[in-house]
Simulated assay, not measured.
Amino acid sequence: MKQLISILGPTASGKSSLAFKLAKKIQSPIISCDSMQIYRELDIGSAKPTVEELSEVKHHMVDELNIEDPWTAADFCQKAEDIRLEHNNSPIIMAGGTGLYAKMFLYGADTLPSDKNLAQDIRAQYEQEGIDNIFAKLATLDPTSAEKLKDNNRRILRAYEAAYLLNGPLPKRSFSQTPRFDCRQIILMPSAELSRELIAKRCVEMLQEGWIEEGEKLINKGLLNTPTASQALGYKEIALHLDGQLSREELQEKLIIKTCQYAKRQRTWFRNQHPSAEIFHFENSLEREKVFNKILSEY
């Protein structure tokens, strides 16, 4: 058995369910490869494992940070590597849909320079003045990166930190074509039609479970002004609903559309960024169940 089993895929593809079943079967912990599940209270919107699932299987990088804490791909890779080495003689599972985290951890990448004191200063400036001045400074040092990142405050802060230390543009990130260590990569790939069906069903369920109420509480705590957690899908739309700009029906439709757009980007990423992965395609829920049973039967 490979020491690390990676189960990746777009949102609502069933990767968390498969990972949980496999973890129980082989008595393995799970590394959550999800940029938002690490935040406490960001439960419904991040499709976090249930309390029962968390009690049955150890999940790393779930409920470990407060929403105001920054979190980067480099942070994820360092922690995931520590966990991998800690479990060096036993299998572990990594499951999630944050493609850059998975790619950097599995294939390695040139890391950008960082400085904790500088990062804290930039973060303090962001909290006091907003993003505009920092964005302008980044645009001076690296206009290409600034244009690419203009709608992502978290990545603007990190890019400016690195560009400041480099005194110029960020280098193009390069990856190895083979994983850094012995692992099996499984990618679940639903068809676009099935993906839309699963996403619509899940968005309705999440709203019924209290996604709006969760959003209101977190927005009141400053979620939308945080450097990383503010990127969580759906909360900006919930804020518009709470402000009276979207009806509940319009909110539901907007959430489904935004999530489908995100899933499309994920499918493109996972088709192209993991050259040594096994990609399992399925057109409907019955085919997905057959894929799950096939994978589970191999362990």
Rank of each mutant, 00 (worst) to 15 (best):
S46W: 00
M61R: 08
Y39I: 04
H60L: 01
H60M: 04
G45H: 00
L54K: 15
S46V: 02
N66R: 11
T50M: 07
I38N: 03
T50Y: 01
V57M: 03
I44T: 09
E41P: 04
I38R: 05
I38P: 07
S46P: 04
K48A: 09
A47W: 01
K58I: 11
K48Y: 00
E56T: 10
G45T: 05
P49D: 02
D69T: 15
E52T: 15
L42R: 03
S46N: 03
E68H: 05
D69A: 15
M61E: 00
D69G: 10
T50P: 01
V57F: 02
V51Q: 07
D43S: 09
L42V: 12
S46T: 04
M61Q: 05
D34F: 00
S55W: 06
H59E: 03
I38V: 14
V51F: 15
D69E: 15
D43R: 12
M36K: 09
K48T: 06
D63T: 10
P49F: 05
V51S: 11
D69N: 11
E53H: 11
I44W: 05
D69H: 12
E52A: 15
D43L: 10
D63I: 08
S35P: 07
L54W: 12
M36P: 02
L42Y: 03
E56Y: 13
K48H: 01
E41K: 11
M61V: 07
R40K: 12
Q37I: 09
I44G: 06
R40D: 04
Q37Y: 04
Y39M: 06
K58V: 14
G45W: 00
M61N: 01
Y39F: 12
Q37G: 04
H59Y: 15
E64S: 08
E41Q: 12
E56M: 13
G45I: 01
E56N: 13
E52L: 10
E41W: 10
D63C: 07
E52V: 13
S35N: 11
E53A: 14
Q37R: 14
Y39H: 03
H60G: 06
R40P: 05
L65M: 15
D34E: 02
T50I: 01
H60V: 06
T50C: 09
P49H: 11
K58R: 15
E68P: 01
L54F: 12
V57Q: 00
I38Y: 05
D43N: 10
Y39R: 08
Q37H: 05
G45R: 00
E52S: 13
G45S: 03
E53W: 08
T50D: 00
I67N: 00
L65N: 11
E41H: 15
V51W: 08
V62R: 02
I67W: 08
D43A: 10
P70D: 02
S35R: 07
S35M: 08
D69M: 14
D43Q: 12
